[in-house]
């Protein structure tokens, strides 16, 4: 939006700025500088205290490890990344239709939904060894753990979203004798979209955790596996490097979902 000076306000007048929040560029710059200062302090402390690298490596040692192991890290990154995306995708494909079925069927709402909600309180970490027992050590058990942890936020968000249509709007639609399909496509699903994306954003962060949990239980590849291996051999800088990769993955995935949200549901309330 352009700001035009109303007639009668001279250009040289001192105008008070009402927007008090700092510009995004400034916020990012401040955050980056703070992070760099902290890393610098860590480097100095690590060198000054002369800590052994296996206990707490310095940032420079971690950077060296990442550089030395870049191809291995990339390979393991891609494994964990695929597990995360496949599990997350599976959760979307299963959760949304199931949530729709639950919303439209009072029987399902009374039978399946309470069981699903009860299952949500089950610690998913505890199921991971069982998956390994049942389906072995390939990618599948990891995908299933990811699916399990990201399934619930999506189904709950979708259910809430679909039932959040304002009552007057439902009455308006009913007064026009709209078909259930019209109501779903034109009103209910678009109304639910912002909440579904909120579910996605919770689920995607959990998905990465789910993949790592799956790898911890038993794997031959993936960043979780690499962390276990590196720590068991006291190669702490490498473990830190893998951890860094996981963090980057988590952030990338979260912002990817947010970007898609902005493109698909621009009307969602900005938070």
């Amino acid at each position: 939006m352009t700001i035009e000076l109303p007639a009668g306000i001279a250009d040289d007048e001192e105008v008070e700025e009402l927007t008090s929040s700092p510009s995004p560029a400034r916020t990012y710059l401040t955050a980056t500088l703070t992070l760099m200062a902290l890393i610098g302090a860590w480097e100095i402390c690590a060198r000054w205290a002369n800590l052994p690298a296996w206990l707490l490596p310095s940032p420079s040692a971690i950077a060296d490890a990442v550089a030395d192991w870049r191809w291995e890290l990339l390979q393991h990154f891609l494994v964990t990344f695929s597990e995360t995306l496949l599990g997350f995708g599976l959760a979307i494909v299963v959760s949304i239709p199931l949530a729709v079925a639950i919303v439209y069927s009072p029987i399902l709402q009374m039978t399946i939904y309470p069981i699903l909600l009860a299952l949500q309180s089950m610690p998913k970490v505890a199921i991971a060894p069982l998956f390994a027992l049942w389906i072995g050590f390939g990618m599948m058990p990891k995908i299933l753990v990811v699916f399990l942890v990201s399934f619930f936020p999506i189904i709950v968000a979708t259910e809430r979203g679909l039932t959040s249509v304002p009552p007057p709007l439902m009455e308006l639609i009913r007064s026009l004798s709209a078909s259930p399909l019209q109501t779903f496509i034109k009103i209910r699903f678009p109304t639910a979209m912002p909440q579904i994306f909120t579910g996605f954003k919770i689920a995607i962060t959990l998905s990465v955790i789910g993949a790592v949990i799956g790898e911890f239980v038993g794997a031959q590849s993936g960043l979780g596996y690499l962390i276990l291996l590196a720590s068991s051999q006291s190669r702490t800088p490498l473990a830190f490097g893998a951890l860094l990769c996981l963090t980057v993955m988590s952030i990338l995935l979260y912002y990817a979902v947010e970007l898609i949200e902005r493109l698909v549901v621009p009307w969602a309330k900005k938070t």
Binding site: P166, P168, E171, A178, K186, P190, M193
Partner: peptide
């Protein structure tokens, strides 16, 4: 359909433009 309704809240569809909001009953 021979009745039009206006409520206390406008309950417009946020994802639609003004024109498409007006056209909703015509679509249905």
């Amino acid at each position: 359909a021979d009745v039009g309704i206006v409520f206390q809240e406008p309950v417009l569809l946020l994802w639609r433009t003004v024109l498409d909001n007006v056209l909703l009953p015509a679509e249905i």
